[in-house]
């Protein structure tokens, strides 16, 4: 851990509320290279507070890259330039002295701006509420080892289940598609024997909700995988498409 400092220029999106106009505000800071981007913003906010100015609104919580609360577009990349790294895990040692950092909110039609760098991502939750679960009441479960799950399936399932629900995939997609997010949940549950019963109904309900709340379609640019802080694979989108097709052929809900 070095104790170097660098000077950077920050161009930060400021917007009071969803219906107000926004614009960039510029700040110059001298920051330790050991600090994270969010720690740099903490410090900047402390200075603004001391001057009685409104601090920059941004969200974060765990600062370990797992809760999915944080999310800033940095120099055009959701969560910044480093692959498989959430904003909170991005440290200033990845930037050069004299560099300019442009910080913007995750932009998408389904993610209205709340203030500055905060957006409303509740549309993602609506999709989960539509079917992203296995219907099992507490107390119903058989012994955990009664249904073996192949290591391969379990590995693919957790690789999909690792999605942190940050919305970077949506923010980077030119169509504001949430297919990686939804595909990850559909895959996670479809890959496990426990998820079989509701397999087709689930994908139909989730896809319908996804369309309803305003997410776009997928045009296979794979930007979502590239920007995903957990590296969730686009294979999950392909799997969701297959599941969806099969659902349309097999499910009881099919409209002929």
């Amino acid at each position: 851990m070095s104790d170097g400092h660098i000077n950077v220029t920050l161009k930060i999106w400021r917007q009071d509320g969803p219906n107000q106009e926004g614009g960039f505000e510029e700040f110059k800071v001298n920051v330790s290279t050991d600090a994270s981007v969010l720690e740099m913003l903490d410090e900047l906010n402390n200075e603004l507070e001391q001057q009685g100015k409104r601090p920059i609104a941004f969200e974060s919580d765990c600062r370990e890259g797992i809760c999915g609360t944080c999310g800033i577009v940095i120099n055009g990349h959701p969560h910044g330039p480093l692959p498989k790294t959430a904003t909170c895990q991005l440290h200033m040692r990845n930037f050069k002295d004299g560099e300019t950092l442009t910080l913007e909110p995750f932009r998408a039609a389904a993610f209205p701006i709340v203030r500055d760098l905060i957006v409303d991502r509740s549309a993602l939750d609506k999709v989960l509420q539509a079917g992203g679960f296995i219907s099992v009441n507490t107390g119903n479960a058989p012994d955990a080892n009664s249904i073996p799950v192949s290591k391969h399936a379990a590995t693919l399932a957790i690789e999909a289940a690792e999605c942190i629900g940050c919305g970077a995939c949506v923010a980077t997609c030119k169509n504001s598609s949430a297919m990686l997010f939804v595909g990850a949940k559909v895959s996670h549950l479809a890959l496990l024997p426990q998820g079989q019963i509701e397999r087709y109904e689930r994908v139909e309900k989730m896809v319908a909700k996804m369309d309803e709340v305003g997410f776009g379609n997928c045009s296979n640019t794979y930007a979502c995988e590239a920007e995903c802080p957990k590296g969730v694979s686009v294979v999950n989108i392909a799997r969701m498409n297959r599941e969806f097709l099969k659902a349309k052929l097999l499910s009881h809900n099919v409209e002929l």
């Binding site: 099992v136 058989p142 955990a144 080892n145 073996p148 799950v149 379990a154 399932a157 957790i158 496990l192």
Partner: peptide, 23 residues
């Protein structure tokens, strides 16, 4: 404690497994 593991597995929690498919 054991009931919790049962419940979680039934919900689709992808716990680590060995090559035989057991937890």
């Amino acid at each position: 404690s054991s009931n919790i593991i049962d419940q979680a597995v039934a919900q689709g929690v992808p716990f680590a497994r060995d090559y035989g498919g057991y937890l």
